[in-house]
Design a protein around this nucleic acid. Structure first.
Lengths: 214, 214
DNA sequence: ATTATCTATAGATCTATAGATAATGC
DNA sequence: ATTATCTATAGATCTATAGATAATGC
């Protein structure tokens, strides 16, 4: 990137970035068919023609965003497995919490991905191999750690893949079902704001109890 | 309903039912904006005009289906809490399994509901009070059962609301994320067909271990 | 001369309805 | 006479592009 940028280049980057941001929000909120290019342009504060000038078609921009979000999906899945040189308990605690925080920072991501892979499962083909190789090595490593601790009765034996699924399931649900969960818990007692904090701690506890780690 | 129905009445019911079935499938698969009335009519094997003849507008039919599915949502949530006159362990086992089976029988329901309540959270207003009163009484009852067993050390103390969230989270995830979960587990070993069966047993186990019930 | 932006509009898609025709029951 | 069905099309919405105009750098 040149040190000095012309006004024009500045303007170009702004417009492009504004459209991209608006599109990302619109697509994550409403999905491909619910999102409208006119709405995106309006939200970005530019004329509709600019949308096509910078990104040609709705499809192309959507593909770009999907690719980006599939990358984030991988991050999200494997952030839960945690750092391998920590004792198992700390590794689990950190893994669950880091994963929870990741979802909290990207609360629209799971629903978007669920819809997208349901509508077009073949999209996963591109990242399949990458996913599998990452998963295999990370899960093997976690499995060894569990087996090792289980052999000296420091934890209950468990399938690492199931533990990973447990963590993801528990952490994602309160975000994708937030309006429902709020109705349910909110009105039973008044602590709505703290629900997510509560759930984060509870999920750590659930996994530790599953593994019978004190 | 009259015992003898005319041909015309038969025909009417068939067409109406065919459109309704096709619409339900289309809406659950693609959501409101992704579903097209032309596609629904085609799938039902009737002309497009029939769609409007029987249901007037896309909106009206969609509202009908949403109302129906919100009813199913309540069923789904509370099937997990189980029967109150069973011992706690059996109650948990039956509750988790019944809930899992319900989701398995309605695999598209959760994603549809998640999208719908996200797009229009005010939709929950109508069933809010009903939900809260059902939840309160069922959860109070479950909480008593847990407290009772916990007081004689037959289980670990736990918040019934958290247990309900745990069950729903764990059971729903493999269905809404099925394509991803399949990639992940399928290729690590070859037991894809049995993943759901495996997960069902695992979820029962997880909840029992959380409650420390032998 | 090149790049960015705008206005205007073409063209596709989708929802909805008008109006004619066929089928059935009284 | 009433109800169900069809064809044809209006009208709205949305994506995309054409072509003119403005701004910037060479």
């Amino acid at each position: 990137m040149p040190v000095y940028m012309t006004e024009q280049q500045n303007a170009q980057r702004d417009t492009e970035a504004l459209i991209l941001q608006a599109a990302e929000k619109e697509f994550l909120e409403k999905g491909y068919s619910g999102a409208k290019t006119t709405t995106i342009a309006e939200a970005a504060g530019v004329t509709h023609a600019m949308f096509h000038y910078y990104f040609r078609t709705k499809d192309k921009l959507f593909e770009k965003i999907v690719a980006d979000k599939l990358g984030k999906l991988m991050e999200m899945m494997f952030s839960a497995i945690g750092n391998s040189d920590l004792p198992l308990k700390e590794r689990i605690v950190q893994g669950v919490e880091r994963h929870f925080d990741f979802v909290a920072a990207n609360p629209l991501l799971p629903r978007f991905i669920f819809n997208e892979v349901h509508n077009r499962p073949e999209r996963l083909d591109g990242i399949k191999n990458n996913m599998i190789s990452m998963a295999t090595s990370l899960l093997d490593n976690l499995q060894s750690a569990i087996d090792k601790d289980a052999s000296i009765n420091k934890c209950r034996h468990a399938d690492a893949r199931m533990v990973l699924l447990d963590i993801i399931s528990l952490n994602i649900f309160p975000f994708v079902a937030q309006p429902i969960v709020n109705v349910l818990l909110d009105s039973i007692d008044g602590n709505s704001g703290s629900l997510l904090e509560m759930r984060k701690k509870e999920n750590v506890k659930t996994i530790l109890e599953k593994l019978n780690i004190e």
